[in-house]
Design a protein around this nucleic acid. Structure first.
Lengths: 335, 335
DNA sequence: AATTAGCAATCGAAAAAAAGGACTGCTAAT
DNA sequence: ATTAGCAGTCCTTTTTTTCGATTGCTAATT
């Protein structure tokens, strides 16, 4: 890959991203300062190397998946955010009023709006939350609600129907004891403490201790199971892209725009921390799309933000947006 | 409208619902026991009355909006649920484990699954909830979380950053006082009590009482503003319907499949209590769809469930499903 | 040796034309 | 009041034609 080939590939990708039409040799003469014949020769080489493709024998060239990969790894130059992009995102952080979860949601909305792609966040409470308070409230003789609050301000609640042989107020009292034992415990250690410190205490006090124990266990359920919540913004934006120009392809992609598919795609609890780009087949979503994702960790929660667009995504811009956004969420770069 | 015309209209609607193709005079000979010429004559009359339409001069007939309306008002005969439909819905209520909100969500999933339409619920806490407990928890010197719990088990929480001149623990103490004043108050009366009973108490104790007052006001925000939450199931099912056979119509309807549009469509805080059918233009969603909705009220919450399908919906079946479901949710008909 | 001009060949996309079929509306007979 | 018969309409599908963009190759040029 000499310099001219690199420039050519870069030009083809960027031209295609912009026009969504196969790129012909003629249209690049000026940019590369040589004749169309030369470009055709170079194109033939790039095609042999697998970086670009033809739809048919007399059509212009289109970047292949490999071509896009080469582009994002070696060719693109993420710029600073443009004025408009920057301005809109800054409104979120301007007044520090929003909690993390709302700020993330707002970010997604703005990004979807600016780019016309789909953005998704899969968030969950981070494991370094400490239990701040466990509160059991009796609603009537056989119904209580358990509220768990962490030091980072995460709150979960769950309702329980309690069996006739146990009194709701009894549960409340046991709740106070359990709270005393667990307060300050990292959420990740709660299960352990429940088993070895709480269970014996309950067993001493209640005959049917398994039932009562399970209530407390279930109260922490969402935290213990790393339950995630998902937010999607601009869900159907993908359908607006011009590559979806026939009913078959639209219906295929449309059927994937449900939360479950997004969840599967975004989820990467073990993935790397820095920004990742998954093109086409690698996206785990659809061969025709690119997914750019990045983890964040802020306040009491952590998660992954993903932006889903066509393969001919505005890579440079989206990378800049996502990086900036996560930096701000994490409190860095607060200029 | 003599009997034969009624049978004819009924046959046209049902035939069209089934085949999604304009109905010709020939195809109904057997059912109506007369010749195609007779049917053509009758059809001409029905067309003059506005109940059916032609796409073009030599095409079969299609029910008009008016025709559908006549059908749902006078012609359809909602049957008992079929075995399969009944069976699936019953699994939800079988073990009384689910809280209302989860049961509703589950119902929607099943209905979307059975019918291939889209279903939506817009729910909110019902106004007859009483405040069971207001709990302020200090997270650090300038951050507290307020948790509101009602007697029906609804829980909301909100985080507050408090100004430097006030101590978090002070807020906690005031919270205990406020809780004492408000406990047992219907949520709908909280705003009033806050203004006339709580505000004076705070004012006596704190200089900057407006700020503190606002925290308590905002803590009840979700309840006071009738904040609704929305759930959608089978969101893109509509796109699968054969009437969406070109990219223009698909993209038009797709752009409406976002939560906001659903919200606007379902919301009818002042609507009638019994089942309502909105066809085409009346749907507030899209001229090509029918929306069937019904309110429910159960546990601590109330809301509206809506099913959105093509105008040629399986009216009888959907009406039966929705009625059965709401009855069960409200605890009636528990056989 | 690298670059370029020139040109026939290829093939998709769009437009135009042709064929086929499903209805209807009307007339006249039953 | 109903029905058989038939011309007329118009959509849908298929086929044909036209048009234009782009390529690969060859030979000339730098």
């Amino acid at each position: 890959m000499d310099d001219r080939k690199k420039s050519l590939l870069k030009a083809i990708v960027e031209n295609y991203v912009k026009t969504v039409k196969p790129v012909g040799s003629n249209s690049l003469c000026k940019k590369l300062k040589c004749s169309s014949a030369t470009i055709r020769n170079e194109m033939a080489v790039l095609e042999n190397l697998g970086y670009i493709e033809k739809n048919h024998i007399s059509s212009g060239r289109v970047p292949s998946e490999l071509g896009y990969k080469y582009y994002v790894e070696h060719l693109m130059e993420p710029k600073d955010l443009t004025g408009e992009d920057m301005l809109k995102l800054q409104t979120i952080f301007a007044n520090n009023e929003l909690n993390v979860s709302d700020a993330v949601t707002k970010c997604l909305e703005i990004i979807s709006d600016l780019t016309n792609y789909t953005s998704v966040v899969l968030g969950r409470g981070s494991s370094d939350n400490l239990l701040r308070q466990l509160n059991i409230i009796a609603l009537n003789e056989n119904k209580v609600v358990a509220i768990v609050c962490t030091d980072k301000g995460l709150v979960e609640n769950k309702e329980f129907i309690i069996p006739d042989n146990i009194n709701a107020n009894e549960i409340v009292k046991i709740g106070e004891m359990v709270n005393k034992i667990l307060v300050g415990t990292p959420i990740s250690k709660v299960a352990e403490k429940l088993e070895f410190e709480v269970k014996p205490v309950i067993a001493k006090r209640v005959k049917d201790y398994e039932t009562v124990y399970n209530i407390f266990y279930d109260a922490f359920n969402d935290f213990l199971l790393h339950n995630t919540n998902i937010h999607v913004s601009g869900r159907v934006n993908l359908l607006k892209e011009p590559e979806y120009d026939n009913t078959t392809s639209i219906k295929r992609i449309a059927s994937k725009l449900e939360d479950e598919a997004f969840k599967k795609m975004v989820d990467d609890i073990d993935g790397k921390d820095d920004l990742q780009i998954y093109i086409g087949k690698d996206s785990k979503f659809d061969d025709n799309v690119t997914v750019i994702k990045k983890k964040y960790k802020s306040g009491g929660e952590e998660g992954t933000i993903a932006i889903i667009g066509p393969k001919r995504m505005e890579y440079e811009r989206v990378v800049s947006l996502l990086n900036y956004m996560v930096d701000r969420l994490e409190g860095k770069n607060e200029k």
